[in-house]
Computed example of a mutant assay.
Amino acid sequence: MTIIAASGTVIAAAALFIVLSGFAGLKNFSLEFSSFVDPDLKVFPSEGKSFVISEDDALKINAIPGIQSYSKTIEERVILEFDGKKQIVTMKGVDENFTKVTTIDSMIYYGNWLEHGTNQIVSGGGISNKLSYGVLDLTRNQKIYVPKPGKGQITSVKGAFNSVLAYNIGIFDINVELNNEYIFANIETARYLLNYDENQVSSIELKLDATADEVKVSEALKTVFGNRANIKNRAQLNDALYKMLNTENMAVYLIFTLVIIIALFNVVGALIMMILDKKASINTLFNLGTTTKEIRRVFFLQGSLMTVLAGTLGLILGFVIIFLQQQFALIMLTPSLPYPVEIKGINFVIVIVTIFVLGILASKLASQRITKDLVKS
């Protein structure tokens, strides 16, 4: 009975560590895609869709220590047309520094990145599939429409829109959402379509040095822009994704904690069976002068020791399995992609604390079955 109870605790501890490590790997796997398109810091207007960055603002940004590079961007919803098919997409106009701030160009699986000073675009794979176009089709072009700002009655369709002819030169693959939503263009193209001034932008995206203090850089940027703009880091830009992943992580932990609680019922049962089996020996100890409290303590320590040893063995077993997965890719998501796992110190602490606390409580519960009536009978 003791072996069975201990085995259940070993398996439960190993399962908890494996699940936490697997979820940590999936979390990082999901978040790493945001690093391809999201900057370290992003400055965007506190009101409206755009703000003006003056030459004085640019000089102050360049003077902030810790900023490696920054890029001006213009973002807006547009109508993209090709061969009679239309789709509303998000166009992001970027300058030549954008590839220094993000690594979006590394996600292009067909074609190339934008050439500065052209009306070229780079599209998500989902958009290119839906509109049925490829790369560098010089016989046919994409057309981008944006409604003109202003008031009054529209007298003609031509007068209601700004438009440019563009050529797709690259297709990127990041995730389903971005692939179906975004196209990238040169900032001059976006500026023309939206009638923006030379220094008018939708956002400024920044790349920081590896040793930069993100908080200090953010405070310096707030000093530059004041109430005109807000600053967010990568986690804040993906706050919904972070909240969802953290919630799922907590849910997984609670579910497997319940599994551990169920496994520890075996420990309680084993201790109670042992108490009943050793009833005569307990009675002898009591008659020799051992108090009920001391007898309880014996079984409490036995149960606690069994739980601690079983939990430690389970933790070691889980670590070995995760290590083997990292080294030899035992389980694959696809033929070329191993199931992502990550060994984190916090997961060791979570498993140890969970097993030890619940095991001690289970042992305490079982030892309380020893009463004066039991030891005297």
Rank of each mutant, 00 (worst) to 15 (best):
S203H: 10
L206M: 12
K207Y: 06
D209A: 15
A212E: 05
A212H: 08
D213Q: 01
D213N: 08
E214V: 15
V215N: 05
V215L: 12
K216A: 06
K216D: 04
V217F: 05
S218E: 09
E219R: 09
E219S: 10
A220C: 01
L221R: 12
K222P: 09
K222N: 15
V224G: 00
V224N: 01
F225H: 10
G226R: 06
G226C: 12
G226L: 11
N227P: 04
N227S: 15
R228C: 00
R228F: 00
A229K: 01
A229W: 03
A229Q: 02
N230M: 11
K232Y: 00
N233H: 05
R234C: 04
A240I: 15
L241D: 01
Y242S: 10
M244N: 10
M244L: 14
L245F: 03
N246G: 13
T247C: 09
E248R: 04
N249R: 12
M250N: 13
A251N: 01
V252Q: 10
L254P: 09
L254K: 13
F256G: 08
F256D: 03
F256N: 03
F256E: 01
T257G: 14
L258E: 01
V259I: 15
V259D: 04
I260N: 07
A263V: 12
L264N: 09
F265N: 13
N266T: 11
V267D: 03
V267K: 05
V267G: 09
V267P: 03
V268Y: 03
V268T: 13
G269T: 11
G269L: 12
I272A: 10
I272Y: 05
L276F: 13
D277T: 08
K278W: 09
K279Y: 04
A280I: 11
A280H: 03
S281R: 08
I282K: 05
L285H: 04
F286H: 14
F286P: 05
F286K: 09
N287D: 06
N287P: 04
L288P: 02
L288A: 13
L288Q: 09
G289T: 10
T290A: 08
T291C: 02
T291S: 10
T292E: 00
T292C: 03
T292G: 02
T292Q: 03
K293R: 10
E294K: 04
R296G: 12
R296V: 11
R296E: 07
R297E: 06
R297T: 06
V298N: 11
L301N: 13
L301T: 13
Q302D: 05
G303S: 09
S304Q: 02
L305N: 10
L305M: 13
L305Y: 07
